[in-house]
Amino acid sequence: MRLDRFLSESTELTRSLAKKALHRGEVEVNGEVIKNAAFKLDQEQDVRWMGEPLALVGVRYLMLNKPTGYECTTRPGRYPSVVELLDVTKRDRLHIAGRLDVDTTGLVLITEDGQWSHRLTSPKRRCDKHYLVTLAQPLMDGAEDLLAAGLMLEREDKPTLPARLERLPATDEDEGEVVQARLVIQEGRYHQIKRMFAALGNEVVALHRERIGDIVLDSTLATGEWRELTETEIASI
């Protein structure tokens, strides 16, 4: 691999900035200053820029505990992107596998592996997505059966896939009763969960994704924190 390409793939430098760094004598290979951008590297050579060792960025698989107020996008928008929470190089290579609304929290998976991401999000795979839902009022009778049968949502031409609903015991929070449920769906339509509960005459107050397939949000991750997936988690998709 050419030295300038190695620099651009292992740092935030572009190819043109990498060449300028070389020209300034900032790059060493095996302890020797190299200024030639076309210098050929092999796998055993030690490359340092400004004294810091460099290594190629491999394929990354990350788990993030998403806070509210962030968009699941890599492009600038009205809200900051979740990738801004990641302290990693080459963030422009990453994409979000299975997005969440700006006001939804919880598990977000981020990678640069397009095939892995496709397996995760493809409707044909019917990957279970688990959510904790906070509702404005108690659930109507028979909600479980209606969701299991599939709902016809407004402006849709086919019903939702069967979903699993689990009612949770009401809790008291700030002297108000909190109504919560767990919902498992296999799709990702626009605002789907909010629209599903609206069809049941209810309103989603808060939404938190806990799990995708066999990958469970790490309970040790505080809001806004992330970690790399384990090999077992990666292989589960």
Rank of each mutant, 00 (worst) to 15 (best):
P123Y: 06
H118F: 14
D128P: 11
G201V: 08
D172S: 14
P123R: 08
E144K: 07
R119W: 11
K158M: 05
E156L: 03
Q137H: 14
I185Q: 00
A181D: 05
D157M: 06
R126P: 00
G150F: 01
M152N: 15
L161N: 11
G142T: 05
V205M: 15
Q186E: 09
R155N: 07
G176I: 04
Y131H: 01
V179Q: 11
A170P: 14
E187G: 04
I193K: 13
I185E: 02
R125G: 01
L207Y: 06
P138H: 09
I193W: 12
Q186P: 05
L207K: 05
N202C: 07
E203N: 06
L161H: 12
A170I: 04
P123D: 11
L165M: 09
T134E: 14
M152L: 10
K129S: 03
D174Y: 07
D141H: 15
E175W: 08
L120S: 04
D141A: 14
E203G: 09
V178Q: 14
K194S: 11
R189F: 08
Y131I: 02
D141L: 06
P159M: 00
L147Y: 09
N202T: 00
L147M: 10
L147E: 04
T134I: 04
E144I: 07
K124C: 00
V184M: 03
E177G: 04
V205T: 08
V205K: 14
L183M: 05
P162L: 00
L207P: 05
H130N: 08
P159W: 00
M140D: 09
L120Y: 07
G188D: 12
M140Q: 15
P162I: 02
D174G: 00
Q186G: 02
H130G: 00
M196E: 00
A148T: 00
L120D: 05
A198K: 14
R164K: 12
Q180F: 12
R167M: 08
E154H: 07
K194M: 11
R125Q: 15
V204A: 04
L139H: 14
A163D: 04
E175Y: 13
A148I: 01
L153I: 02
L168K: 11
R119A: 05
H130I: 02
L135W: 15
F197P: 03
V204C: 08
T134N: 12
P138E: 12
T160A: 03
P169L: 06
R195Q: 04
P159I: 01
K124A: 01
G201H: 13
